[in-house]
Design a protein around this nucleic acid. Sequence first.
DNA 1: GGAGCCATGTAACATGTTACATGATTAT
DNA 2: ATAATCATGTAACATGTTACATGGCTCC
Lengths: 184, 184
Amino acid sequence: MRTLKYAILGLINREPMTGYDITREFNSNNLANFWYAKHSQVYPELGRLMEEKLVTCEVVIQGEKLEKKLYSITPEGKAQLLEWLMKNEPLEATPKDVFRLRMYFSDFMTPEELKNQLSLQLEKHILKKKYLTDIMHENHHDQAPAITTPEFGDFMVLEGAIMREESYIAWIQNCLARCPEEEK
Amino acid sequence: MRTLKYAILGLINREPMTGYDITREFNSNNLANFWYAKHSQVYPELGRLMEEKLVTCEVVIQGEKLEKKLYSITPEGKAQLLEWLMKNEPLEATPKDVFRLRMYFSDFMTPEELKNQLSLQLEKHILKKKYLTDIMHENHHDQAPAITTPEFGDFMVLEGAIMREESYIAWIQNCLARCPEEEK
DNA sequence: GGAGCCATGTAACATGTTACATGATTAT
DNA sequence: ATAATCATGTAACATGTTACATGGCTCC
């Protein structure tokens, strides 16, 4: 699959970046909602991409002597990125979800503990949704940017992340509604 | 984290099972929507659980001489499972999603190819939703079973999986709606 | 001068996938 | 008989996390 390879190629295709920049993107408000990696994964992968001649590297001096490696995409890199973007593969395996797994075994909890677990999770997803909508206001003022700009991709996936949270929240509320009323 | 450990404990807690049974559950209509593992991961984990004395194992002969290992949960296993179910941990990292990653880089595609990619994905998620709702009709007749039964967990997570597909479908339709109209 | 960030890397470990390997049972 | 499924395991590899390790730059 080598998805990390294409994630890095896609970022460098937007503009030349260092490994540090790429890692920062992977922990940003946009990308982190559907892809991420630690720097310990990024640097070795950049090495592989160099070997495969999909990126080139220029050493830049920051200040007195700090060396940064600024990576750029090659024509072959662009070609492979485009090929990957055009793919039509079967649906990926469904994402793993530890909370859903715990709910699957809910009959081993008391109804009170089940309700408590659902409420705690609900709260967290409500906060996450608020966090995402705040970013949406700040970055896009809830207006879709023009297609063919990088901002369009940012906007689409952020909107998707918000919708995902809304759906999760609605699901938990459904589950809570199905739990019996407290005995007085 | 050792989530696989708890997934296996949770299953064996419902009733004694073999490694083969567990693997089958991990590829079923319920569980596979939020957790799964291959048999090559299950058998070694069962070995670890034996070492930790969280499960016991009884050899059963099937037919003439086929040996099955039927695993049961121990009191200590039950205790650890319950502890895990009661946890209140921060939200997991957001699930990775290759299609969203490709959409993030959509400005590198032509608008036509972007629409094509969105349409292909839409179709797949519509099929998946139909697949899930069919199972819902068959297994539960759209009626929530009583809380405190294992079927309640099955129902909850299946409902969640359907809602997840509905949300994904709505997102893709949003994206398509934002794409410009075809020229004449 | 020190805190926090910029910048790059490696090592050990945990998790997960694909392939290799073997053999019994059941239904056609 | 033979194909599909039941049943259990290991090996090699890919992916991802945590910890170790080093040093420069910028702002206070």
